[in-house]
Simulated assay, not measured.
Amino acid sequence: MTDDTPSKPPSVPIRGRGAASRPDGRFEQWQRAAFDDGWTAEEEAALPKTELIVDTAKSVIVEARSPDIPFELSINPYRGCEHGCSYCFARPTHSYLGYSAGLDFETKILWKPDAPEVLRRELARPRYQCRPIALGINTDAWQPIERKLGLTRRLLEVLCETRHPVSIVTKGALIERDADLLADMARDKLVHVMFSITTLDRELARVMEPRAATPARRLDAMRTLHEAGVPVGVLFAPLIPALNDHEMEAVLQASQAAGATNAGYVLLRLPHELKTLFPEWLQQHVPGRAEHVLSVLRQMHGGQIYDSRFGQRMKGSGVFAELYRKRFALAVERLGLNQTRDTLNCAGFRPPRTAGPQADLFD
């Protein structure tokens, strides 16, 4: 791009979507540059529809190698997420697939129809060693399309059958549907569910997380699982300076009232394409706060908008980071959260049965 390249026209918010543009992925050999030529294409004004794309894989269990996360294994039934959260740290992963981290991430959803069968084969391997699996960590396993496909439930059925421990993070109230399986697993200390609640402000949630359940519905789902005997907690994630940071204590208190016994928080992360996408969202929806948000982020990351180093990327450093740490610690102590941390039970794992008459011989 040269200095005389036409400037990009301002994008217009799209109803029901978090991103308003479809920037090219960072791995593409060329980049498109939009400019205002005085014409408005009718097809650009149409609301983009969700497209399902079949994704095949020899393995569904992914091994994580990060000291910042409390799990070693994970399963993601979907790639891309209809929730459309403007801040989602997983958006840049769509670039690996040749798609945009913007609108493509929330409209082109890849799913693995045979994932439960693949999982069954993996768990049956003689060398498999049982360790807790995080379900739906990169993208939400209970996103809207799950209501139609039921893929996550089928995976959960395999984990329940084999008494395999699982940890869950979701912002989908649809998880209430699976309370029967989760309650069964909870009796053997096989499951823990964390709800991601970013704000209690319905209007802010509507534009920031357009297709996720409302904050009130997430709290209702949390209460439902708690009453069913499922251990639940809350993640105030992401914490966005000058936008939702003032709600930390209120979110923790509302969650504690709904049954949460554990809590955590994560600072807003803007890797790769998000360094452009999220500021674009700020300018569209909260222009008066945009520069303030980005300024505080830079102060927490040594002058950069994001620092990807382990130990730094989740919480930041400096005066603001320390303030958030102290506020969180005081709120947790006042509410009696994080008093105990249950360990998921791996001792009861039983490999899936092999189909066929030979398997029944020794029953």
Rank of each mutant, 00 (worst) to 15 (best):
A359F: 11
G84N: 11
P352M: 13
A347G: 07
E203S: 07
V118Q: 05
V191T: 08
F310M: 06
M300N: 00
I197G: 02
R153N: 08
L239N: 09
R120L: 09
M185S: 04
R91C: 09
G18C: 01
I168S: 00
M208R: 05
D36E: 03
R341G: 12
T343V: 14
R269L: 01
D220K: 12
D201G: 03
F328G: 01
K171S: 03
D180N: 13
A254Q: 07
T198A: 04
V12K: 11
A45I: 10
P144A: 01
A212D: 06
F236T: 07
P92F: 09
H272K: 13
T224D: 09
L181R: 11
A101T: 01
R327E: 06
T107D: 09
L337W: 01
C88V: 02
L149N: 06
K108L: 10
V251G: 03
L73P: 10
I61L: 13
D24L: 05
Q256F: 04
C88R: 00
R313I: 02
P352V: 07
L97Q: 11
G318E: 00
D114G: 05
A329G: 03
L268Q: 03
T5M: 14
Q312C: 04
A183S: 15
F320M: 01
P132C: 04
R202S: 12
P351R: 13
D4G: 02
L97T: 08
I305R: 05
V60P: 01
R269D: 00
I168M: 09
Q253L: 07
G229P: 11
V60F: 09
I137D: 06
D220A: 14
H192E: 15
A242S: 03
T199I: 06
